[in-house]
Design a protein around this nucleic acid. Structure first.
Lengths: 253, 253
DNA sequence: ACCAATTTGTCCGTATGTATA
DNA sequence: TTATACATACGGACAAATTGG
């Protein structure tokens, strides 16, 4: 293993400037590059990656566009990005509680909502008959003024009618559940995958092409174990990391 | 939200054929494309993605090279890949147990090992003084004959001397721990992030440039709560999904 | 105020790769 | 296969801004 140096591949179908941008973004995240907040000069980077200075400049321009870097004529290029927020996945997973203390300006907004017939995966997760009416909520969450995730959630339309209106008021799933008579709920299962950002991610999460999203598929249940929410959440992978506290310290298994 | 159709972006720094290949690979994994084992004709794909047939052919050729597709002249293009394996993360997380039943031919091999001075993050995780001697193990795991993950693990060199040799014999962390006198251990914490595959991933996991890896950073502890293993594991995101069983059903929190 | 060194910003021209028709 | 258009990558030159003597 032990990779010594950058490997930038030509005619791989990925432009050099994008490979370099991706690599710099990662190394910045790891603290390998710009740990003092300052990037090496363009010429040094060009030499290191074995490319022309212009190619490095294209990569830097992309990262400036993303908000990762900031370039100042005559001074240098500096790291703008902050460190990743830790999103805890636990028995009582609550969005705002999880990120509280790590960031200011937590906010959520409702992008879209509708009542529809439950698709097969939604019906199975919520233990409803396929085609039963369900409420679909499309929400987006911000931290520090930047979008961090977008979620698509489904609820039994009979049990939780008024969910969309409640969310619009409270901007919180937990508060909406409480308003509709559900005081507590638990995370039953979470599945994590990773994908390239799709067109919706680019738009709603303000990502650049080639960015990565962490996708969680979760089922929440009430205290009787009945499913109350099925959701697919897409996190910007460069702004969020998922943290799973060890069950080992909580339970004897 | 509700993204209707594939959006292939021009001048994004990623060649169209690669965007199409990445998208087809993902949709095949999701069952959206080729769920019956058969791909639509090239002309249909070209129309769907809004590109020339030649561009689709370049994408298909790349996936054939990867082993995802198989093209037969005059008959069509067929899916070779299989569906994503679920890797459970729980109190007693064990690699081979977790994937048992989902795949045949589970195997692990030792890529490299060394005794070194503990870097700061390793020392903190293992609760050792920085610079203390630790054993570093670089391992790789296969399922169904394909590599699915590579891991870099550290162990206290004093407590677990002989770890590398034990692993080389047993090809199992659990068995090696047992051999060295540790009968049981628990997962204390797991952090999940996602990144683009680096040069080592491309080589060891046989990925193509632009592919995504799920990265887990985990700490295992013995039954007294003392850290015994710190590891960074990189999973091929198109072959593995992480599954977190709900603590909600196991504990009252 | 001036100068030299450093670093980013902009412009030119040219060659190659990618995608279409 | 051929032709065309555009994106990508390179090399060089010089301007503009900043820093420190």
């Amino acid at each position: 293993m032990q990779v010594k140096e950058a490997v930038i591949e030509r005619r791989s179908g990925v432009a050099l400037w994008r490979q370099i941008a991706d690599r710099m973004r990662r190394e910045i995240g790891e603290g390998v590059l710009g740990s003092d907040g300052r990037m090496p000069p363009e010429m040094a980077l060009a030499e290191r990656f074995g490319v022309n200075r212009h190619t490095v400049r294209t990569a830097i321009a992309a990262l400036v566009q993303e908000g990762v870097l900031r370039a100042e004529q005559g001074r240098g290029t500096f790291v703008e990005g902050r460190k990743r927020l830790a999103y805890p996945i636990r028995s009582r997973t609550r969005f705002s509680e999880g990120l509280a203390g790590q960031s200011r300006g937590l906010a959520a907004d409702l992008l879209d909502h509708a009542v529809e017939a439950a698709p097969i995966d939604v019906a199975r997760a919520l233990m409803l008959a396929p085609g039963s009416p369900v409420i679909r909520l499309e929400t987006r969450s911000h931290a520090d003024g930047r979008p961090v995730s977008r979620a698509r959630s489904w609820f039994d339309a009979h049990r939780f009618s008024g969910m969309a209106e409640a969310f619009e008021r409270s901007r919180s799933i937990t508060a909406s559940f409480r308003e509709l008579g559900l005081a507590d709920y638990l995370r039953q299962s979470t599945t994590v995958t990773a994908q390239h950002a799709d067109a919706g991610d680019l738009k709603d999460l303000n990502l650049s092409p080639g960015a990565i999203v962490l996708v969680t598929i979760a089922i929440n249940v009430d205290t009787d174990g009945r499913p109350v929410q099925y959701s697919q959440t897409r996190f910007a992978a460069d702004r969020i990391e998922l943290h799973i506290p060890g069950a080992g310290m909580e339970t004897g298994d």
